[in-house]
Design a protein around this nucleic acid. Structure first.
Length: 574
RNA sequence: GCGCCCUUAGCUCAGUUGGAUAGAGCAUCGGUUUUCUAAACCGAGGGUCAGAGGUUCGAAUCCUCUAGGGCGCGCCA
């Protein structure tokens, strides 16, 4: 139900029928033709650049061509009540009232599906994947919400989506973490001082985890770290993953699948993956040069397995083995992605933080190699979140206690505001997150602005003692939208296009921006009744104009669909 | 040194596969409430789209170069 696509096709069809009149050769000539909405100061519904595109091909004046096209279309397409040539050769179209009624009824019928096009693809989205060494902090929030909303968006657009979390439960960081728990346990049990060692995790939650473990197994043997490592690791990770899952739950996020790195190592998936790529000569033994611009004094030039990622657009080839011959993080991740590739998705998406942007080329290269260039890994990088409090920035540092956890954040700020605000920017730009601003109930806070729009519509129906779904029949006689109502209608039919573009380009931020714009036009119209009583919706307890109510129903459908995608609440009363 | 992202109004940012007079919010100034929710609305001022070239009917958008800011560079995860 994308009006612009529908009329693009209708127009193309008619023009091709008359291609001899216009000296056209084939459909290819119409490739760059678009139909979109004209600028707001034109009182028209649709606009096309077709005459200008054709001018280039048939080497004629765009205004002459526009005139010819206008003649053809006004005879062949009955939906238009007016066609107008403007500017350098744009064609502007006004839809007839009859057509509008048809469109409105169609939208109303599609309801929950309005805006959705059945794309029917299978996606895998990996996001968050934070190290299971402690609870989530604010920095994780953006990617988490981005991934969740992108999933909602793609699902709304008719696709199947698997939301996945890769648990990095292997390697040095984990050992440091488990050691931290170990020392906390000794601290509690033997009153030993917690050692002042560089790599230990300082957070209080480590003590909580130690206490939980002690409660469950009070007789745990704490003499030999190596001996109890496996058990202790399992227990510690279980607890830290619970912390993370709980944080995600509070944000309204639930993954479909958790995939463990340890499992990859234990099941020899890395060997299998490496052998596969060795056959294609994408992996070979060799030497790497030390990285430039960094201190390379500790560099060891030894022979090891190397993935030739430069064959797939990376800047340098990548090591798969450490000095001791064990696998690198990348080798394991490659094996993990090999598993994802084997699961037959149409698209793989990874959501990463800005600090991992440098990783995208090599992992994309890996997916290309593994899938014989069949599958593209799409990496979306979320830039940093800058935190503000009372207008001034405050820095988080990884050192003790100096970071804001998701838990703390949600103690201060409502989940709905957090979700909306985190998406109210393109993922490519840094985001200022102001604690005080999200608490405000004003136009400063776009969440409330959009919610208020819905609340007002509901209030209106309440005043009329009507249900929001009250059946309203339109007929030509009563259908006389005013200029504000046309503005709203024109905005309403943009919704499917917004969803389409947002989902094609993986840019969920377009949704909140659109909802805000729609709300702006609504609030403006609402206030017109203050200036001029003839714009009031209720006069003497009765409906003034049927059409405005119908339009508000359409708006509420969009707000419901949009906020559903964002995972933000939509109260009927505020 | 190299890679990714960014540079649009005083500030924070949108800008739909290249389209018409580049748009919002905040801030500033001035107005609107006997009324369906003022959590709102209306008006005013504010621009060399970082700079320079190029591509073309047409560039904030595409290409090249330059300058500035952020993140990163592993045989860590």
């Amino acid at each position: 139900m994308n009006l612009f696509k529908i009329y693009l096709n209708k127009i193309k069809k008619q023009i091709l029928k008359h291609k001899n009149t216009l000296n056209l050769k084939s459909e290819k000539d119409l490739e760059n033709v678009i139909v979109e909405n004209p600028p707001a100061n034109f009182d028209f519904d649709l606009s096309s650049n077709i005459a200008m595109v054709l001018a280039k091909i048939v080497k004629d004046n765009p205004k002459n061509i526009a005139e010819k096209i206008k003649n053809i279309l006004s005879k062949e397409i009955r939906d238009f009540s007016d066609i107008h040539i403007a500017g350098p050769g744009f064609l502007n179209f006004r839809l007839s009232e009859k057509t509008w009624i048809k469109i409105i009824n169609n939208i109303y019928k599609s309801k929950k599906n309005f805006g959705s096009t059945k794309k029917n693809k299978k996606y895998n989205i990996e996001f968050v994947s934070a190290n299971p060494t402690g609870p989530l902090h604010v920095g994780h929030c953006r990617g988490a919400i981005f991934g969740d909303v992108l999933s909602n968006l793609l699902k709304f657009d008719g696709n199947k989506v698997t939301k996945e979390y890769y648990i990095n439960d292997y390697g040095n960081q984990i050992e440091h973490f488990v050691r931290s728990v170990f020392f906390r346990l000794r601290e509690i049990k033997f009153k030993e001082n917690y050692p002042d060692m560089k790599n230990l995790y300082p957070g209080k939650y480590v003590i909580d985890i130690a206490n939980k473990i002690l409660k469950k197994t009070p007789k745990i043997n704490l003499n030999d770290f190596k001996k109890i490592y496996k058990t202790l690791k399992n227990e510690s990770l279980k607890h830290s993953m619970n912390l993370i899952k709980n944080d995600l739950k509070q944000l309204g996020i639930k993954h479909d699948r958790f995939f463990s790195e340890t499992k990859i190592v234990n099941n020899n998936l890395v060997y299998k993956t490496v052998n596969k790529l060795k056959k294609n000569k994408f992996i070979e033994e060799g030497f790497l040069d030390p990285p430039k611009g960094e201190d390379s004094s500790g560099w060891k030039k030894t022979k090891r397995l190397i993935f030739k990622s430069t064959l797939f657009g990376d800047d340098t080839d990548r090591a798969l083995q450490k000095n001791d011959g064990s696998w690198t993080y990348f080798a394991n991740d490659m094996a993990y992605h090999s598993d994802k590739v084997s699961r037959n998705y149409d698209y793989l998406i990874n959501i990463l933080g800005a600090d991992h942007a440098g990783y995208t080329k090599r992992i994309s290269a890996a997916v290309s190699a593994l899938s014989k260039n069949e599958i593209t890994l799409i990496c979306k990088v979320c830039q940093l979140v800058k935190l503000f409090k009372k207008g001034s920035p405050f820095k988080m540092s990884k050192r003790e206690g100096d970071f804001v956890s998701v838990n703390q954040l949600l103690n201060e700020v409502d989940k709905n505001s957090v979700r909306f605000m985190m998406l109210n920017r393109s993922n490519d730009v840094e985001l200022d997150f102001d604690f005080d601003k999200v608490l405000e109930k004003s136009k400063d806070n776009p969440v409330f602005y959009v919610q208020y729009c819905y609340a007002r519509i509901n209030s209106l129906f309440r005043s009329l003692k009507m249900n929001l779904n009250y059946k309203i029949n339109l007929n030509l006689k009563g259908f006389k939208p005013n200029i504000y109502e046309y503005q709203l209608l024109r905005k309403i039919v943009e919704w499917p296009k917004i969803v389409d573009v947002a989902s094609n380009k993986f840019e969920p931020h377009k949704i909140p921006f659109y909802l805000y714009d729609l709300s702006t036009i609504f609030h403006a119209y609402w206030s017109k009744g203050n200036e001029d009583p003839k714009f009031k919706f209720i006069i003497n307890g009765k409906i003034n104009k049927i059409i405005s109510l119908k339009i508000f129903q359409l708006i509420s459908i969009i707000l419901e669909n949009g906020m559903f995608i964002l995972g933000v609440s939509l109260p009927k009363k505020m």
